[in-house]
Design a binder for these strands. Structure first.
Lengths: 338, 338
DNA sequence: TCCACCCATGCAAGCGCTTACATTTACCAA
DNA sequence: TTGGTAAATGTAAGCGCTTGCATGGGTGGA
């Protein structure tokens, strides 16, 4: 009975090609050290058998997987899609694969998934933001797994990271809003607990507000999950106040989408009744009506750079990276003078 | 020099606990067959060393990974997000992990990723739709990897699948549109080449159109990628015709989003100048302005069921599944009488 | 013609686990 | 006390690959 009915292994290929397994292995990996003649024989056998190397066996023997793990807070909306796409494409060009999982913004789930990815032999990891337990960093350190943080950059942190300054960026936008004459600002923030990006963005607004001589007590803030519905609900709450805000600054574009949608339902015109701003500049932002004024984040560049630097880290071609990217304000129709 | 500096293995744990590796292994897997006493000792050692089992080694020895692979056409937009989320949650409840990759709607990439996932030892696979080369199915068959298809259901196909009838669903919507009095319909379809769902949806519209006694030559159709921008561009093209359509039926909600956005830019009012319909009922649909009339797909149920049935397939508790889910039309503001 | 080298190849030792099978231990009935 | 049985544990053989080292054959210089 031919063995061909079961899954072919290196051994099968070697036997079929009349060489040793070592030779087959070398054919499949290092291009060199095998004569043209032999390689041809081997490749023919590989094709004939439909051989595909067993990943686990390879990982075990080589202690290298050419796999990168990424854990993002959510796949539900497009916040991370563009950046991750670029990350993945760059990785792919360099012969790496990407394993993605989502933590649903839950730190304990993130920790679990980090362990799972490391256990799977990920050569490196991409994580979002800084905030996580020290024990997680210790674990990564101990296992020697190169890790790069993205979507955030804080000059006082030393961990390899590629991102932008959420705080300064949001402050820039808030300054702009205030300079346009707005004096009644309300904020729909993401949940800051366990999310340094959300916290920094909120702080950016507070910075601006305070620096312009206003009282933080006069700055209504609602924290709510990054979902369209929540943004809508928060909008309704904020507009129910006796002193209606003239502008609502949202922690990201998803919340802003909800706010604008709800504004329409409630009969408010944006921006003449109330302005709305976002953050991230997801693709949808410019297609909202009115188009959303927001902070443009260079997602593609961030993903690409993160991939390149992470691979350097893995190859030992560098020991640390810290790169700050520039964001810009995109003025669109959703923001006007009060 | 203590070995604790390097990554702890089963051996280390066994030594620390004063038992054999077999016992430790049994502790970590089958709950039974180990005395309470021993288990405690072992667990203590595990904690102390911070031991995490090596996934590859485990996969190799056990020939089982408790990992499911899913390949979806895109992560860029939310089409698959809800369904995948439910799929993943159900899997997780049953102790399985999910590996996701995206094929960017490219069959050859999908084939490559299928091989990669199988090589990684995926116990089962989730794929979208029916259309792929026979060789891919043969490969899966040969490797004995259980595979379930989702997001589509065709009664004439026998492969395990869980989905809905794209053709009948879209036809239902088209019938409705026509019954409202529309006689000038234009279609923005996804690229049908290599995408059976897109093709079926388009066929559904054609079915209805023909069944109502109209000529297929009078049905303008543009095929374009599932992107907001493309939807917008297609909309502009269709409206540039001498005979403007009274309704534009889109292959999915993403295209419809682009169409509505572009309509505003061009100064058309939806639905009084032109109606727009979508398909999928992504979260955004109801937040568009006007809210989008579309076909509601039970994504959550589909994901959940797919997970359950796939696991049954893997466990050999069943040999085949074919389940058709019901969709429904959601009437919202974007569709009105001409 | 001979020797030193180098390149292509083979040999075999793991990588860290699981599990069939063997062994030991504990306990109970006779 | 002793034999028998079942439960707990240990032994060791792989799982499919990579890679350091050994080997052998071919090449070119003297």
């Amino acid at each position: 009975m031919p063995k061909s009915l079961s899954i072919p292994t290196l051994d099968d290929v070697a036997r079929a090609a009349g060489v040793s397994t070592a030779t087959v292995s070398r054919c499949l990996n290092a291009e060199k050290k095998v004569s043209e003649n032999t390689r041809e024989k081997v490749m023919k056998a590989v094709d004939a058998l439909g051989y595909v190397p067993n990943f686990s066996a390879r990982a075990m023997a080589a202690k290298r997987t050419y796999t990168i793990g990424a854990i993002i807070p959510t796949m539900e909306n497009a916040i991370f899609a563009r950046g991750l796409q670029a990350f993945q494409e760059t990785l792919h060009e360099q012969g790496y694969n990407l394993l993605v999982s989502s933590s649903a913004y839950r730190p304990e789930l993130e920790a679990e998934q980090i362990r799972a990815l490391v256990a799977r032999g990920a050569d490196g990891l991409l994580l979002i933001g800084y905030e996580r337990e020290q024990s997680v960093y210790d674990y990564l350190e101990k296992r020697g797994t190169p890790t790069i943080l993205a979507w955030a950059y804080q000059s006082n942190k030393t961990h390899p990271s590629i991102g932008f300054d959420n705080r300064a960026s949001m402050r820039m936008l808030a300054d702009r809003v205030i300079s346009m004459g707005h004096r009644r600002i309300a904020v729909i923030s993401g949940i800051t607990d366990g999310n340094d990006r959300a916290e920094e963005r909120l702080n950016g607004i507070k910075d601006s507000w305070a620096a312009n001589g206003f009282n933080l007590d006069d700055l209504p803030i609602i924290q709510t999950p990054y979902e369209i519905e929540s943004g809508g609900a928060a909008f309704a709450d904020l507009m129910a106040a006796p002193q209606k805000p003239t502008v609502i600054m949202c922690g990201n574009d998803v919340l802003a989408t909800g706010a604008i949608s709800r504004a329409k339902e409630l009969g408010y015109d944006v921006p003449s009744d109330v302005s709305v701003t976002g953050f991230d500049d997801i693709e949808l932002a410019k297609h909202l009506h009115p188009p959303l004024t927001t902070v443009h984040v260079p997602h593609g560049e961030m993903g690409r750079t993160a991939a390149e630097e992470l691979i350097k880290l893995i190859d030992g071609r560098t020991t640390s990276v810290r790169r700050q990217l520039n964001v810009s304000i995109v003025m669109r129709g959703s923001l006007a003078r009060p």
